[in-house]
């Protein structure tokens, strides 16, 4: 069958909301876009463990430590679900990991910002996970079956992440003056980077159009960002804190909050590798990968030895 016909059938399936499964024919660009997006998403989960992992030993109570451990463990699991989904498209796990470590593959820039205070654990949960969830809820309906199934699983676990973050900030917001100040300072630092998580403006995003047509994405960057601002602008009232944006204002006509302009120079700078922690994060991943090499080799050798012993007994 000519490629044009295959592409027509493919698009018809997408239009009828029929999910694409790994062995179905798909345009090469669809495969590549999904591999790129899913593996980036997986890398983000894995690198995302680092800023929080740093606070496990410094958590203020046993309860907070247990919560943080559970959350970081979830993120490792989310990375696994996503790597598996990307592998169904024909890229090996080793290849993805090596692309991450060489800097060829990207991950969410948000994790290139440092987590300086305990309040950051709250702000990361509330704002960063909050932003991620909006994207992930949309992706539960993405057109590629394995990706959609991974997202459903992730969303089920993710809502605890956002709630625990908000609750941690709530406790601080009702605490001493020093705790309140720590809470506000943390929100100040995380607000703008969180808005940047949704990516470039629609007018400048190169991937959006085709991704929408293929239903890999179902909402544009700007739509999701607006949804996020509307949600957070209300929730911050409960905390009695303020968002660091003088232009944030309810627009009765649009029925949405207006907000100020993002510092796009900063955005591109961090994407290109010049954020505060880009090097530190990659170095940490490389070290973990190198230090774990003997464990991976030993496990394989042990498995091979067990099989050999079994075969010898049978013979």
């Amino acid at each position: 069958m000519p490629v044009q016909d295959l592409e027509k059938i493919f698009q018809e399936k997408i239009d009828q909301e029929i999910k694409i499964e790994p062995r179905d024919w798909m345009p090469e660009a669809y495969r590549k876009t999904n591999i790129r997006q899913i593996s980036q998403h997986a890398h983000s989960e894995v690198v995302g463990m680092l800023p929080e992992g740093n606070w496990i030993s410094r958590a203020p109570s046993l309860k907070r430590k247990a919560i943080l451990l559970a959350k970081v463990q979830d993120e490792g699991g989310h990375g696994l679900y996503l790597y598996s989904a990307a592998e169904t498209l024909g890229m090996s796990r080793d290849e993805m990991i090596s692309d991450l470590l060489s800097g060829k593959a990207k991950y969410s820039s948000i994790f290139n910002y440092p987590a300086l205070t305990w309040a950051d654990m709250g702000a990361v949960g509330w704002l960063v996970d909050g932003a991620a969830i909006l994207n992930q809820v949309m992706l539960c309906r993405t057109s590629y079956g394995p990706y959609a199934r991974a997202m459903v699983r992730i969303c089920k676990e993710e809502s605890f992440h956002q709630r625990q973050g908000f609750e941690a900030l709530l406790v601080l917001s009702r605490g001493t003056d020093a705790q309140k100040a720590m809470c506000q300072e943390s929100i100040n630092r995380w607000w703008w980077p969180s808005l940047m998580m949704f990516g470039p403006k629609d007018s400048e995003s190169t991937n959006s159009d085709q991704s929408m047509k293929w239903k890999i994405k179902r909402k544009t960057n700007d739509e999701l960002r607006q949804q996020f601002v509307d949600m957070i602008a209300e929730q911050i009232k409960v905390l009695g804190m303020r968002l660091p944006d003088d232009q944030l204002k309810w627009n009765e006509e649009r029925k949405h909050y207006d907000f100020g302009e993002i510092n796009w120079d900063e955005f591109w700078n961090v994407v290109k590798g010049n954020g505060p922690c880009n090097k530190q994060r990659l170095d940490a991943r490389k070290k973990a990968h190198d230090d774990g090499a003997w464990v991976r080799a030993a496990a394989l050798a042990y498995a091979a030895k067990k099989i050999n012993t079994k075969n010898e007994k049978a013979a």
Binding site: V3, L6, P22, R23, E87
Partner: peptide, 11 residues
Amino acid sequence: YGDIPDDGSGA
């Protein structure tokens, strides 16, 4: 691997 197209059924 579970579902990887290993024959030409993909593009």
